[in-house]
Design a protein around this nucleic acid. Sequence first.
RNA 1: GCGCCUGUAGCUCAAUUGGAUAGAGCACUUGCCUACGGAGCAAGUUGUUGCAGGUUCGAUUCCUGCCAGGCGCACCA
Length: 546
Amino acid sequence: MKRHIQDRLLELLAAAARDAFAGQIPEEALRVDLPTDVRFGDVTTNIALQASRVLKANPRQIAQELSVSLRKRIDESDLKRYIQDIKIEGAGFINFYFARPYFQELLKEILIDKEEAFKVDFGRGEKALIEFVSANPTGPLSVAHARQAAVGDALAKVLDFMGFAVSREYYLNDEGNQINILGNSVRLRLQELLGETVVFPEDHYQGDYIYDMARTLKEKGAQGIDFAEYSSAYILDIIRKELDDFGVAFDYWYSQKSLRTSGKIQQAFDLLTEKGFLYPQDGATWLKSTAFGDDKDRVVIKSDGSYTYLAPDIAYHRDKFARGFSLLINLWGPDHHGYINRLKAAVEAQGFDPKGVQILIVQLATIFRDGKPVQMSTRRGQYITLREVLDEVGKDAARFFFLMRRTSSHLDFDLEVAKRRNSENPVYYVQYAHARISSILRSAQSSGNLAECDAALLREPEEIELIKKLGQFTYVLQVCVHTLDPYMVTVYLQEVAERFHRFYDRHRVLGQESGLTLARLALLEAAQTVLRTGLGLLGVSSPDKM
RNA sequence: GCGCCUGUAGCUCAAUUGGAUAGAGCACUUGCCUACGGAGCAAGUUGUUGCAGGUUCGAUUCCUGCCAGGCGCACCA
């Protein structure tokens, strides 16, 4: 209902603008912004400012003329009852103020349709593949992977909610140097345990888990074992369990090795050779990536005949498209940003639209305790793991905290704050609002059909402010889709919780005149729907009691 | 040396992607419990948006040049 009204308002505005400007300004300048700051109306448009640039005329005067024509159209339509006022403000913004019936219908829509009320089919079923974490199975997941897991999963949920057909994929690096080094590390530690003197190279893995594996093998015996295969499988089990406990489930685990064994790398190379984008030089084979904006051409087959990391990636992204995905989203760590151009070049060289590949750099999180960074020593193979964070603060706080800043920004994660059970801890603040509403709804006992309440009885400023905030949920999700970043949901949920707590502090729900109690219960239930849906999109639980 | 990112209140970050008086939380000060969960609410204080120019009705946002910090520049993955 809410969007329906906004869409029709937009139509009337466009019609009024067409009359006023008669093709003097381009259509794309006709734009209605969605609700933002209640100081400046519920919906606003800067169309007059846009037009003034083209027409070289006074924006306020244009806005004035436009609003007269618009008012006339609105008065002639049934939108009249939803629009309280139209004001020209600031440099020439046209601000619309909705009347009570608008908010009443918004509330009823939420009560009847629940979370469906906020869905908009932006994706139109487009197949999207989000590839994230994809850590080499050479050790437990770090906090860097943890943030990627939290962001990737939440983004997948948001895109799914907004009409995309989303799959989650983990690209499994199951062959190559790192795996061999891992296997060798275990082999050397085992020899050590068996009393041999070994030289342990600098670049080998040193974590405790290497010793664990070596000890296990000492007991079981290691006759005829493939160390690389054994140890990577062992670690993969650990990673799967960690992700499972973090609430992140992948649809596909895509084997890098399979790209070679299935001949898909060769197929991709045949195509590129045919197109003339592969050439030999100095005994190696090069991709002519400079033809697509890369700084330099890249080696894909080394002079010893083995592939570089780029080779399987070329075939991998070709295969993603071949599997029917048209939106490929990759979450990478900041150390990979130099790799973006060459991958996009590889995609384009194969004839695909590079805009179909969206690479998001997930910045690192620094773990703090009481305001001080937690020391870590890479020398001993020790880094802060997902497991440690999970054990210390729990899944809900961990996921929420990793999402609290823009994905491309550095994030400070204070373990002590995440464990706190008061308003300093945003996740508790939001969850507490949800639990408090549950408690009130429980106390209300039989509530009747809340959707049939008389929403017109809600006229306190705190009530209206809360409804308005609920009505912005779709807009927030829209921004998340547009920016491919779910972080704004965490900000929004804190705002919803804040509006609820303020309302709660100033007004009573139970024990009022029965119509008013019913209407306020309806408001709380709608707020709870938003909180639960939003937390759900972040992968955070919505407790009824805390 | 080349390229990318960042620079906003004491601290951590926003600012609807070029909009209106640059906002939140923390910290600090002070109030609010005989009623639905005080794990809450309210009030107060904090700014040369790194610096200097440019583009225009309008710049934290875009462009140029400096300054500071981070990261990347492999026939590693």
